[in-house]
Design a protein around this nucleic acid. Structure first.
Length: 943
RNA sequence: GCCGGGAUGGCGUAAUGGUAGCCGCGCACGACUCAAAAUCGUGUCCCGCAAGGGGUGAGAGUUCGAGUCUCUCUCCCGGCACCA
């Protein structure tokens, strides 16, 4: 497969020349050009490049090269995320030095990356495991420490009792055993250095709204942050000084509390006295042994133990309720304690059923959500009864419109109102009683007319939709005017009442309905109106939340699912945490002047119950030498996510020995124009780095609050059969592919197989690569067909191609951009030859996709400069179109044929052409027509 | 369970509400060849000899016209998941 297109020689030749001539070295400023930094997640130097790396690095390079050709100063940096577990594992397994192992891998990998032919600026590259880099990790740690963003806390870690070591989550198998030793992993509390990321939870959440990222990514982050608004309320423990502080999102259900639950790890469990001490201790011990998965699997049978003799006082109604410990309450969320309302919470309900705790209903469900009405058993619309109220938007008052057993009733029954001598309440109750006489009537009600109408509109019975729409329109008018139409006014009057009156009428019916449901053991988790709640009866859930919280002396509170970030690792191959302990054991940050605080080399990597750094004599001697006798170093290292939280800032100023990244350089490059990465980093890495940027922003060390203007997650390349690439299922070896078809073809095929930035699985199709290679060979072959003068017939396709390729690259639709170039080449081959200028345009369009072959062909045309420094072709809007167009001829919306006519024809002219068409004429002859005419596209002749 | 995103030929995919299936793969036939590969050409959604008809997960709606917009449902993928 080649003709004389020798990809091996060409690629090698140009990569060498590009490097020698520093074609891709990027200056910080270029007069007249905007700076654009395109970021890709820096790779871990595993030592072997796979197709995923190609997809991650080679495809965004198309975008970067395009930006450069369209007049931008585009930076495409690359580095190595070089700390981490694999190096340490290799050290233990093969007795090699982690640094040597890593450096060796970086060397291999850099060569592989260079062979891709990307326009990386290697002059800014670094590895995070060098002191030149990690000293700034330590420096930033110090700044965070000063700012109160660092603290020490006992946190449960995975503990391997055989190897006597802490395990990373990825070293624990799904069944809860250790990957290496096979031991059952336990939880053990260790003091850890923490970053107070939760302090930024609200800002991390709020800023998302303004970011123009894909909504799906933002939504994942929102879920991860997991904001909940509610209240903290204290329950006194009867006969003691102790209080149980709970977080709840439903303070409106406080009167329905029938028991309390503490997490097994809750500090009060140790302090309270209860009769069944042994039983409780056993439960707590068992909970500690359980793996995270065992404990948190949803739908799992509830377990727990009652603290015999301990009672808590419900501050709302002064009732005493029992106290349990149960592992369905998590120590790490909220306050680690929960008030249980079994009538209105699924988990509490299941627990109450099992432990025979009373269930007290305090909410009458009624959704105020106009889109999602409660689904209270309304299976058949014929059986549905709806009370409709009209709300006057001006006054906020309501009038009863109707109460009927069918939808048809609603449309005709704008009647309601109040008869002579009746109060509004009596009017409603009279209607209710009338309705109650209908046997088996299922009752619901909506406070807002919109609800009723929309519900009907969305109901299965589609034939009724039109009725509902008519109703909606009619009611909308009424709401605007606050009156009813004259036709209705003759027979009906509207009397306006406030919302509380309406509610008072309705609560009794709903109680009946709800009790019916309880027989079927349903839990009512939605909001509504209060019952069994003393003076709050009849209040809406929303109102009651704040009123009840205030009544019992609680406070409104917000909780997040996101936890603070533990950065401590009991590992060797990472950044040493810059902390030393004085002889009393107090922690002190290591002053900046002693940074970098070097990672010692005289350590034993083998697991032995403590951090490897603890075995370094040099580290301990160094500490005493600098800080004094009895001072001890911190022996933990930092989480590698620390390295990747700010690395992009270092690219901008990677050789700066005075600053981690100068504001000056940041002004020129930040924020990052586009950040391409894997979907697996949507939450953790992306949130951590946003947190870093925000915290550094508050410290005045960075210039923007949000680091990434745009973020796109790429898809996954899978095997041809759809299986994920792995050692077991096999994987495409990119080096082999490059050897066969060349780097240009591999890169272009990856760009061609589907849209970029849309997560999904894209199967590697060996035939597909060959297809792209064939295309490149055809482009190669066109060199022989070049003539001096432009060929008129391919001018329009050429300009169309310039337009589409440019627009598609900007939108990351590389697949359709390539498709358009193929269309153009097909047209050229049909034509036979092409003008030199036309060929040069094609080569420039293709250059970002296939940098080597286009560079070669460009030089063969006699050019001496690099094609990659050329300007992007500009299309002429006047040349986009050809003289004739093919129009669709439709009869009553069905396409009956096509007609090739000259561009810009009028309706009359096209109609005339249809009449003249032997085949099409028959259709119009039949009926007198109305015509829908879309110039140059379609003519639709309607009977 | 909750939150996102999908569903179009044998496959990857393409279609500002306007001829569904562009482009590529695969396949079939033909040319070149002793032959094969490569290459080139023609064809390739379904039914039908044709005329014609049907077709974008299912059903309905809006529209002159729906893959595209609205609603209901099914299935698939991803994330979260005892979060009070």
């Amino acid at each position: 497969m080649s003709r004389d297109y020798d990809h091996k020689a060409i690629e090698k030749k140009w990569q060498k020349i590009w490097a020698e001539e520093s074609v891709y070295k990027v200056e910080d400023t270029v007069p007249g050009k905007d700076n654009v930094c395109v970021l890709v997640e820096l790779p871990y130097p595993s030592g072997n490049l796979h197709v995923g790396h190609w997809y991650a690095f080679a495809v965004p390079d198309i975008f970067v090269r395009f930006k450069r050709m369209t007049g931008h100063n585009a930076l495409y940096p690359i580095g190595f995320d070089a700390f981490g577990l694999p190096a340490e594992n290799a050290a233990i397994k093969h007795a090699v030095n982690p640094r040597e192992w890593t450096e060796e891998n970086i060397k291999t990998m850099r060569a592989q990356l260079e062979a891709m032919g990307n326009s990386f600026d290697w002059s800014r590259s670094f590895a995070t495991c060098t002191p030149e880099y990690y000293r700034w990790n330590q420096w930033i740690f110090n700044r965070f420490f000063e700012r109160g963003l660092v603290y020490r806390k006992k946190v449960p870690v995975n503990w391997d009792p055989i190897d006597q070591t802490v395990l990373a989550n990825e070293q624990v198998l799904p069944d809860g055993t250790a990957e290496r030793s096979g031991a059952k992993v336990e939880k053990k509390d260790l003091d850890q250095w923490m970053f107070r990321i939760t302090k930024y939870a609200e800002r991390l959440l709020k800023n998302l709204d303004a970011l123009s990222w894909p909504e799906s990514i933002k939504e994942l982050q929102r879920t991860w942050i997991g904001k909940s608004e509610g209240a903290e309320i204290e329950f006194a423990v009867v006969g003691t000084e102790h209080k149980i502080n709970v977080f709840t999102t439903r303070p409106d259900t406080l009167f329905g509390v029938t028991y309390m639950v503490l997490a097994p790890e809750h500090p009060l469990v140790a302090r309270l006295s209860y009769e069944n001490k042994d039983e409780v201790s056993a439960y707590v011990a068992a909970a500690r042994l359980k793996s995270e998965i065992d404990r948190t699997a949803a739908g799992k049978e509830k377990t727990g133990v009652r603290l015999q003799g301990v009672m808590a006082l419900n501050p709302a109604n002064n009732q005493e309720v029992p106290v349990f410990i149960a592992d369905y309450v998590l120590a790490s969320y909220g306050t680690g304690a929960s008030m249980a309302v079994p009538a209105h919470d699924e988990r509490d309900f299941a627990f109450a059923k099992k432990f025979n705790v009373p269930i007290v209903q305090v909410i009458v469900p009624c959704s105020d959500d106009p889109i999602n009405p409660p689904k209270n058993g309304l299976e058949e619309i014929e059986r549905e009864t709806i009370i409709v109220f009209l709300k006057n938007k001006a006054t906020g008052l309501y009038a009863l419109l109707d109460w009927h057993g069918s939808l048809e009733g609603i449309t005709t029954g704008i009647m309601g109102g109040v008869e002579d001598g009746q109060t509004p309440e009596e009017a409603v109750l009279a209607e209710i009683q009338e309705e109650a006489a209908i046997p088996d009537a299922v009752v619901t009600r909506k406070l807002k007319w919109v609800t009723a109408a929309r519900y009907c509109a969305s109901h299965k019975n589609q034939n009724r939709k039109a009725i509902a729409h008519a109703f909606l329109a009619e009611i909308e008018d009424l709401s605007q005017q606050g009156t009813i139409p004259e036709s209705e006014a003759k027979t009906h009057t509207l009397t306006w009442v406030d919302e509380s009156k309406v509610r008072d009428c309705l609560v009794p019916i709903h109680q009946k309905m709800i009790w019916d449901q309880f027989k079927e053991e349903k839990v009512l988790t939605e909001g509504g109106f209060l019952m069994n709640s003393g003076k709050f009866n009849g209040a809406s859930s929303e109102d009651a939340k704040s009123r009840i919280t205030e009544f019992v002396g609680g406070r409104m509170a917000t909780t997040y699912k996101m936890r603070d970030w533990s950065i401590s690792r009991q590992r060797y191959w990472g950044t040493p945490i810059p902390i030393v302990y004085d002889p009393e054991g107090t922690a002190h940050p290591i002053p900046d002047e002693h940074l970098p605080w070097l990672l010692p080399t005289d350590v034993d990597y083998n697991p032995k119950g403590t951090s490897p750094l603890g075995s370094s004599k040099e580290l301990f001697e160094r500490t005493e030498r600098i800080f004094g006798k009895g001072w001890k170093p911190e022996v933990e290292t930092m989480d590698t996510f620390m390295d990747s939280s700010w690395y992009f800032l270092r690219y901008l100023d990677s050789r700066n020995e005075k600053e981690f990244s100068s504001r000056d350089k940041q002004e020129q490059w930040m924020p990052i124009h586009t950040y391409f990465g894997g979907a697996e980093h949507t939450t953790v890495h992306l949130l951590y780095s946003r947190f870093f940027q925000m915290a550094l922003y508050d410290l005045g060390l960075v210039t923007v609050e949000e680091p990434y203007t745009r973020r796109f997650n790429r898809g996954l390349i899978v095997n041809e059969d759809g299986s994920k690439m792995s050692k077991r299922t096999g994987a495409v070896n990119p080096d082999e592919q490059v050897a066969i078809v060349g780097a240009d073809a591999v890169k272009m095929y990856l760009a061609f197989m589907g849209p970029y930035g849309v997560t999904g699985n894209y199967p590697w199709n060996p035939g597909g690569v060959v297809g792209v290679r064939r295309f490149l060979e055809r482009v190669w072959g066109l060199a022989e067909k070049v003539v001096e003068d432009a060929r008129e017939m391919i001018e329009a396709p050429l300009h169309q191609t310039i337009k589409k390729v440019g627009e598609d690259i900007e939108a990351f639709k590389f697949n359709t951009a390539i498709s358009q170039m193929m269309i153009f080449v097909n047209a050229v081959e049909k034509e036979g030859d092409l003008g030199r200028a036309q060929y040069e345009v094609l080569l420039r369009l293709l250059a970002p996709f296939a940098p080597h072959i286009t560079e070669e062909l460009w030089h063969r045309l006699g050019h001496t400069g690099s094609i990659h420094l050329e300007a992007w072709p500009v299309y002429n809007p006047d040349r986009l179109t050809s003289e004739t167009v093919t129009m669709a001829v439709q009869i009553d919306g069905k396409t009956k044929g096509t007609l090739t006519v000259s561009r810009g024809l009028t309706e009359e002219a096209v109609l005339a052409a249809v009449r003249e068409d032997a085949k099409l004429a028959q259709y119009i002859a039949k009926f007198p027509s109305r015509v829908v005419f879309i110039p140059d596209k379609v003519i639709n002749i309607v009977p």
